[in-house]
Write a protein that binds this DNA or RNA. Structure first.
Lengths: 166, 166
DNA sequence: GTTGAAAAAGCGAATCT
DNA sequence: AGATTCGCTTTTTCAAC
């Protein structure tokens, strides 16, 4: 190997080094933390932190920022997981692109197992879920299996980014 | 009814009115948007926006802010969905609390269907997934069924908050 | 990475509609 | 009640070191 990468006793910590991981961890837990606070927490100057955050954004390590919302309060009280399977398994599998235009689909995961993708959807009511399922089937040529979410004990807990040595 | 709530042709838009929904939508898409920009996008004064955002935070409509991170880059390249089912169905169901201390569990959904909860987990490697699954089974007295995520076409798309009339 | 200064944004109180 | 204007403070941002 020509390059020396971050590794430690068999555990690979990814291409982001210690201080950067601290920054990412802090911002994942509080996306609006100021550069001033970030500097205090990391022991760096404000400018140094600023520079690192911009670099992390540019490299795509930080992909963006989001407010975490109460979906009940904004009229989207119904969450569901929709597993999909192509009706014609020999057809090209471009379901994610075919579904990207549909509002209400929050995420699309390609998975191992019986089905090919799991979608996470948020809608306003059972009728809206029904309509969305019809659109999913029609748009992607798939069958669907839906698991309705009854309640959400917790969600979006900040990631357990490891801070061990490089 | 004594109170008049937001309703429109059979569609209930939640307890958050038009302009507030605009604000929430904008912040969900860009959690670091400045109050100045927010004011421009909504046609309000900066102070008015400021006041509304604080109120939305206090009411819990905005629950927090988070940086969206590239999990591969920070050493958590393995995502999975873990469906759990109590081994003893007559025992009290407090799985969410019993699992809350475990790092690596990002979300916990109570669901309708064969299993009782779906967990979303992020770990660094297959071995770490194995260890986490053992901890889940031991901590909550459940059996697990795991669906490994192979790739993530998209995730955390901003919610389709409706902006129709109240 | 650091310091330091200018520009921008955040924030609270008083005022007005 | 809710929006606006006014100042002051903090943060952001961009120089040069």
């Amino acid at each position: 190997m020509g390059t020396s990468r971050a590794a430690c006793a068999g555990r690979y910590f990814g291409p982001v080094e210690e201080i950067d991981r601290r920054i990412v961890r802090l911002l994942a837990a509080d996306g609006r933390m100021s550069f001033t606070d970030l500097a205090k927490q990391t022991g760096l100057s404000v400018s140094a932190v600023h520079q690192r955050v911009r670099r992390l954004e540019k490299r795509g390590v930080i992909r963006g920022y989001a407010a975490l919302v109460d979906y009940d309060a904004v009229g989207l009280p119904l969450t569901a997981f929709v597993s999909i399977k192509p009706i014609d398994p020999s057809a090209p599998d471009d379901a994610p692109e075919r579904l990207a235009h549909l509002e209400g689909i929050e995420a699309c995961y390609s998975v191992a197992g019986e089905e090919s993708y799991i979608l996470k959807v948020r809608v306003g009511s059972p009728v809206e879920l029904e309509e969305l399922l019809q659109q999913i089937r029609a748009s992607a040529g798939v069958s669907t299996r839906t698991t309705v979410v009854l309640s959400i004990p917790y969600e979006h807990r900040p990631p357990a980014i490891d801070l061990s040595p490089d």
